[in-house]
C-alpha cells in the first residue's frame, strides 16, 4: 500500500505537536519559573533576567524528548573567572535540588533532570550560565562568555570558553523559523534525529536547514521541500560553513566531526533513495508519535452475539 508522503509528513508533525504534551509543557514552565526565582534570590543584583534559549523559545520544539534551556546572564563583576561562575551555579543547583533531581555538569550547561513524578513525567532543564564581556555592556550588546566544562581538561578540548550572543541565536532562528515551511522541515529533521538516535545537535540542524533555504529554491509539497533540504545536506554537509548568529567567529560546522558529517551525508542519501523507491519507507525515517494516535478510535472486543466455535487444534 503506497503512502502519501506529504500527508504522512503532515501527520508526523501533528502527532509531534508540542501542544499534545500540554501537561508536561506546563510542568516544565513551572519548574523553570522555580529555578528563575531561586537564581534571582541567590544572586540578586549579580544576575540579569534569565530567559528561555532552547527549541521551545525558537519555536522548533517537538513533543518527544524535549527539554528547556535556560540562559542565566551574569554581570562582569559577579565572578572573577568563568570557571568560578560555572562552579558556583552548579553548587547552588546541586544543593537546591539534591534528592529531587539528578544535577550534572554538561558542556556549557548544568543539567537538571527531575525524578519521574506520579504521571511518569520527567522534567529536564539545562541552565546555561554566561557572563557579560565588560561591565554593564550586556543590556546593549547581549554578548556573553560561556564556560566550557570538560571532564578531560581544557587541553584535550581546546578553548575553555565560548563567546556568543545567545539572544541573537534565539531570534535568528525564531525569526527565520517563523517562515512556516522552514519550521516544519526543522521539526521533521528533529523527529528523524530523536527517533533514530542521531548525533547532530539541534543547533547544527537548525542552521543547516536555514542555509539550505537560503541556497536552494525550497518549494512544492512538504515531501518535495524536505527532499530538497535532504539533498542539500547530503551534498554539502561535509564542506558547508555554518557561522554562529551569536558570534560570526564561531564555526558551528566544527561541532560535528568529519566522520559524523560523512555519516550524516550517507543518512540523507539513504533516506532520499529509499523513500523515492518506496513511499512506505518514509514511515521508518519519520515515524508518527504513537503516543498520540491520529484518530482516537477506541479498541473493543467487538461482536458479542451467540457463537459456537469449531473444532480447534492448539499446539
Amino acid at each position: 500500500m503506497a503512502t502519501d508522503r506529504s500527508k504522512h509528513l503532515n501527520d508526523v508533525l501533528t502527532t509531534h505537536k508540542i501542544s499534545k504534551e500540554q501537561a508536561l509543557l506546563d510542568k516544565h514552565k513551572s519548574k523553570r519559573d522555580d529555578i528563575v526565582t531561586a537564581l534571582n534570590e541567590e544572586y540578586g543584583t549579580d544576575i540579569y533576567s534569565p530567559f528561555n534559549s532552547g527549541s521551545y523559545a525558537k519555536n522548533t520544539a517537538v513533543n518527544k524528548k524535549f527539554d528547556f534551556d535556560l540562559m542565566a546572564p551574569f554581570k562582569r563583576n559577579a565572578f572573577s573567572t568563568l570557571k568560578e561562575m560555572y562552579e558556583s551555579v552548579y553548587d547552588f543547583l546541586n544543593e537546591k535540588y539534591q534528592g529531587t533531581a539528578y544535577v550534572r555538569r554538561q558542556k556549557v550547561s548544568i543539567g537538571i533532570e527531575f525524578y519521574a513524578d506520579g504521571d511518569g513525567h520527567v522534567i529536564k532543564i539545562d541552565v546555561v550560565p554566561g557572563r557579560e564581556l565588560n561591565k554593564d555592556q550586556y543590556p546593549e550588546d547581549r554578548k556573553l562568555n560561556l564556560y566550557v566544562y570538560s571532564q578531560f581538561g581544557k587541553i584535550a578540548e581546546g578553548s575553555d570558553y565560548i563567546r556568543t550572543n545567545v539572544s541573537a541565536q534565539v531570534s535568528n532562528i525564531r525569526d527565520n523559523a517563523n517562515r512556516n515551511d522552514l519550521r516544519k522541515i526543522i521539526r521533521l529533521l528533529k523527529v528523524w534525529k530523536i527517533h533514530n538516535n542521531k548525533v547532530p545537535k539541534s543547533f547544527f540542524i537548525e542552521l543547516i536547514v536555514i542555509k539550505a533555504f537560503d541556497k536552494k529554491n525550497v518549494s512544492g509539497s512538504l515531501w518535495d521541500m524536505l527532499k530538497i533540504v535532504l539533498e542539500y545536506i547530503r551534498d554539502n554537509v561535509k564542506t558547508v560553513s555554518l557561522s554562529d548568529p551569536g558570534n560570526t567567529g564561531n564555526e558551528v560546522a566544527d561541532s560535528l566531526s568529519d566522520w559524523d558529517k560523512t555519516v550524516m551525508s550517507d543518512d540523507m542519501a539513504n533516506i532520499v533513495k529509499r523513500v523515492d523507491e518506496n513511499s512506505d519507507n518514509i514511515k521508518l525515517y519519520f515515524p508518527l508519535n504513537d503516543k498520540f494516535p491520529l484518530n482516537d478510535q477506541k479498541n473493543s472486543y467487538g461482536g458479542g452475539g451467540f457463537s459456537v466455535p469449531p473444532v480447534t487444534r492448539f499446539g
Binding site: K283, L284, P287
Partner: peptide
Amino acid sequence: NPNLYMSLVHVLKL
C-alpha cells in the same frame, strides 16, 4: 539498534 524493532517490523510490513 538503535531502532532495531521498528526497522524489523517496517521491513516485514514492506
